[in-house]
Write a protein that binds this DNA or RNA. Structure first.
Lengths: 186, 186
DNA sequence: GGTCGGTCGTTGACTGCGCAACGATATGCC
DNA sequence: GGCATATCGTTGCGCAGTCAACGACCGACC
C-alpha cells in the first residue's frame, strides 16, 4: 500500500479533463504490476537497511563490500577493473573511484596487468580480506534477517528462477531499441 | 555467474593465512543466497535500463516518474512532502530537491497545507499529468519488456507474495538493532 | 498563557556516481 | 612497418542524494 508504484497510469483516454476532484480515472493496474512494485519496494527498503548497518559497523558501503567480495572470489584474488565494473554493476569511472577508496583504506592494491599494458588489476590485501571477513558476518546477518528469514526454500527457489530469468538477458548487450522481446507488442 | 555476490564469504575459519594462490576457501554459499544475488542483479540491470529509456524519451528519472505517479494517485492530486518522501523512499531533503526540479519543469506546484501551517503539499499540474501520461507508456513498455514479459502469472503471484512479505515489515520502523526476526539466531 | 520537546520542510556541505573527453595501448588491415 | 579504430583506466564536470543544522510551527504539560 505504501510501496512505490512506478507504473500504473494511462487508461481511460477519453476522460473529462476538467480538474474535478479526481480520485481514480488514470489507473491502469495491469496484471503483474503488483509484483513489480513489491520488487522495487523490497529492494529499496532492504538495501537501505543493509547499507546503514554495514556502514555503521564497518565503514563500508554495499558497493564496496560487493567489490571486495568479487575480488576475493577471483582467482589470485585479483580482477581487472573492467570486469569488476561489470560485476558490481558500476560504470568504469565509478569503479576507478571505488577502488581509489579501497586502496586508500589499504584493502586493495593496484597492479599492472601482465598481459595487457593498458590494464590494471585490483588485488585484495591481507587487511582487505580481514575487513571483508568481519563485514561478511554483519552483512549476512542482515540478509538473513531481512530477506532469507522471511522466505522458505520454495519461495527462494521461485525467486531465484524468476529473477534469474529476468536478469540474464540483460547481461551486457548494448542498448537495444527493442530486442529479446518475444515477438509480441512493441 | 556474473551477478553481484554481495554475500558469501566466511567459512573455513582455521584456514592457513598464507598468501597461497587461493582459489576457494572462503566461500560459504548459504542456501538462499542465489536468490538474493538474482534479486540484486535483476534490480540493478532493469532499473538501469528503464531509467536510461525514461531519461532519453522524456527527461525524467525513475524517481521523478515515481513521484509524479504518487501525486497523481493521491486524492486531489496533492500530497504532503512528508508522505511523498516515504512513498518514493527518499529522505526529506531528497524530496525537497526532487519537487524543486518538478516545479521548475512546471509539472508540480507547491501549496500550503490547510490543516498544518508547517506543511507543504505538492500538487500535480495539467502539464505534469500530461507529462506523466506520455512517460507512462514508455515506462510500462519497458517494464513489460524487461520484467513482466519474462514471467508467467504464477511467477508474478509468487514474486508479489514473497517480496511483499519481505518488504512489509520494513515499512517505517526506526533502526531496529534486532527486531522482528522470528526468535532464532541473532 | 508560557514553555518544552517533537515534527515539518528547507538549506549548506559533502559524497558517490555517470557522462564525455583524454592519453595510452591493442588490434586489424594495408 | 604504418595507420585507423577500438578498448583500457583515469579525470573534470555536473547531478542527485544523504546528513546535520536551522527556523517555523504543533501539541502537551505546567
Amino acid at each position: 500500500m505504501t510501496t512505490p508504484s512506478l507504473s500504473r497510469v494511462a487508461g481511460a483516454p477519453a476522460e473529462a479533463p476538467t480538474a474535478a476532484r479526481g480520485s481514480a480515472a488514470l489507473i491502469a493496474d495491469e496484471p503483474g504490476l503488483g509484483a513489480w512494485r513489491s520488487f522495487l519496494t523490497a529492494h529499496a527498503r532492504i538495501t537501505r537497511r543493509l547499507d546503514e548497518e554495514l556502514q555503521a559497523a564497518h565503514g563500508l558501503s554495499l558497493a564496496e563490500y560487493d567489490a571486495l567480495l568479487q575480488i576475493a572470489h577471483a582467482p589470485g584474488r585479483r580482477v581487472r577493473m573492467n570486469v569488476l565494473a561489470e560485476r558490481v554493476i558500476l560504470s568504469r569511472s565509478g569503479i576507478t573511484r571505488l577502488v581509489d577508496r579501497l586502496e586508500a583504506a589499504g584493502a586493495v592494491e593496484r597492479k599492472a596487468c601482465s598481459t595487457d599494458a593498458r590494464g590494471q588489476e585490483a588485488e585484495l590485501t591481507a587487511v582487505g580480506l580481514e575487513r571483508l571477513r568481519s563485514a561478511a558476518t554483519t552483512h549476512l546477518e542482515g540478509v538473513r534477517r531481512y530477506f532469507l528469514g522471511r522466505l522458505d526454500s520454495a519461495d527462494l527457489a521461485g525467486l531465484e528462477a524468476s529473477l534469474g530469468r529476468v536478469a540474464d538477458p540483460l547481461e551486457s548487450g548494448s542498448h537495444p531499441a527493442h530486442e529479446g522481446c518475444p515477438p509480441g507488442e512493441l
